[in-house]
Amino acid sequence: MELYLADKVVLVTGGSKGIGRAIAAAFKAEGAEVAIVGRGKEALERARKELDVFAIEGDVTKEEDRRQMIDEVIKQWGRIDILINNAGGSNGTTVANTDVALFYEAMELNYFSAVALSKHVLPYMKERRSGCIINITSIFGRESGGKATYNNAKAALISFTKALADEAIADGVRVNGVAPGSILHPSGNWQKRLEENPEKINRFINDQIPARRFGTPEEIADVVTFLASDRASWIVGATLNVDGGQSKAF
Rank of each mutant, 00 (worst) to 15 (best):
E167K: 11
P123E: 09
I134M: 04
S138G: 04
N110D: 13
M69N: 06
F112M: 08
T161Q: 07
I136W: 09
G131Y: 11
A101I: 09
K154H: 06
M69Q: 15
G88K: 00
G141R: 03
A163R: 14
L157D: 06
R129G: 08
F103P: 05
T93I: 12
G177K: 00
G146T: 03
L157C: 08
F140Y: 12
N110F: 06
I158L: 02
Y150V: 09
I80P: 07
K126Q: 12
E167T: 06
V115S: 01
V100G: 06
V173A: 15
Y104F: 13
F160N: 03
V175K: 10
G172V: 04
S138D: 12
I133R: 15
A153L: 02
T149W: 09
A179G: 02
A165D: 14
G177Q: 02
I133G: 14
N91A: 07
A148P: 12
F103I: 06
R174D: 10
A170S: 15
M107C: 07
K162Q: 14
L102C: 01
L157A: 08
Y104C: 09
R79T: 04
Q76V: 03
R142N: 13
T94W: 08
K147Y: 10
G92M: 01
F140T: 07
N135D: 02
K162C: 12
L83D: 04
N91K: 04
Q68R: 15
I139M: 08
D81T: 00
V115H: 04
D81R: 05
G88L: 05
P123I: 09
D99E: 15
I136N: 05
N152T: 12
T161W: 03
Y150K: 12
A170T: 14
K126F: 10
A165L: 13
T137H: 09
S113Q: 07
A155V: 02
N97M: 09
L157R: 05
E127Q: 13
N85W: 02
E167G: 05
A148N: 08
I158Y: 07
K126E: 12
A155F: 08
K147H: 06
A168C: 13
R142Y: 14
Y111D: 00
F160K: 11
L164P: 07
I169H: 09
A148Y: 02
G89L: 01
L164A: 14
K119Y: 13
V73Y: 04
A153S: 05
R79N: 01
A114M: 04
I158P: 07
I139Y: 10
S138T: 09
L109E: 10
F160E: 07
M125H: 08
I74G: 01
R129W: 11
T161C: 06
E167N: 13
I74Q: 06
G146P: 05
F140R: 04
M69C: 13
A165K: 11
L109N: 08
V73E: 07
A156R: 08
I169Q: 09
I84P: 00
I80T: 01
W77E: 05
L122D: 02
T93W: 10
A155Y: 03
A116L: 08
S144H: 08
I134C: 03
N110V: 07
A96V: 05
V73Q: 02
A170K: 15
E72Q: 15
G141E: 06
D99N: 12
G131I: 05
N135C: 02
K154W: 07
W77A: 05
I84R: 00
K119T: 12
V100A: 14
E105A: 10
Y111L: 10
G92K: 01
